[in-house]
């Protein structure tokens, strides 16, 4: 654990909670892409299946459970509790155009051809593009609310901090995960937009 990774994780957590609180407090999910949130729930679910197979640390386990829980809570608020405020007409990105190629890529390029590892790879690739429905929605409606901008900023910051984390880990631990790094760079570039 280094300072970049910790602040990256906390920034990620802040983004998730900012979005959840915004929807809860305003009783509205206007301007939020439900499709992006479903993709993030899918990302966390497929990535954290190792909760069932390996224990890394209490921190690691708790954060995973919190991320999964919050992402499902967000999806629930958008599609169930406050679905009357969900702007489905503007959330028209075709997610199959992301999920299918990303699934194919995960099968082709991975560290190990095993179910858990392919799902982990799938989640890494999917996370890098999961925000596209949200960006697409903003481009259609023309304007993002301030709080949505804060959410996007925290998510982008999280990825940028993880890049510094990987540079740190490469120098001090010799750690190098090509799949995570390439996907992380793609993701960071998308958020710069």
């Amino acid at each position: 654990m280094n300072v970049f990774r910790l602040t990256g994780d906390l920034s990620h957590l802040a983004a998730i909670i900012i979005l959840l609180l915004k929807i809860w407090k305003t009783r509205s999910c206007a301007g939020i892409s439900g499709k992006s949130q479903i993709l993030f729930a899918l990302v966390f679910t497929t990535r954290y299946l190792d909760l069932l197979t390996s224990f890394i640390s209490l921190y690691n386990t708790s954060m995973k459970v919190i991320y999964i829980g919050c992402s499902y809570a967000t999806v629930y608020l958008i599609y169930m509790k406050f679905r009357a405020t969900y702007d489905g007409n503007h959330d028209s990105f075709r997610v199959e155009f992301l999920v299918v190629p990303v699934g194919g890529l995960a099968v082709l390029i991975n560290h190990d051809f095993s179910p858990l590892e392919i799902l982990w790879t799938f989640s890494i690739y999917l996370e890098s593009v999961a925000i596209l429905p949200q960006l697409f929605m903003i481009s259609k409606t023309g304007e993002a609310e301030t709080i949505t901008t804060h959410y996007l900023f925290c998510l982008g910051l999280y990825r940028a901090l993880y890049l510094f984390n990987w540079i740190w880990r490469y120098y001090f631990e010799g750690f190098f995960d090509m799949i995570a790094i390439v996907a992380g760079v793609v993701q960071t570039v998308l958020y710069c937009d």
Binding site: D9, D50, H111, D112, S114, E117, A180
Partner: peptide
Amino acid sequence: AEGELLHDEL
């Protein structure tokens, strides 16, 4: 498990 990759990041 043995031979399994361990992903320690979130």
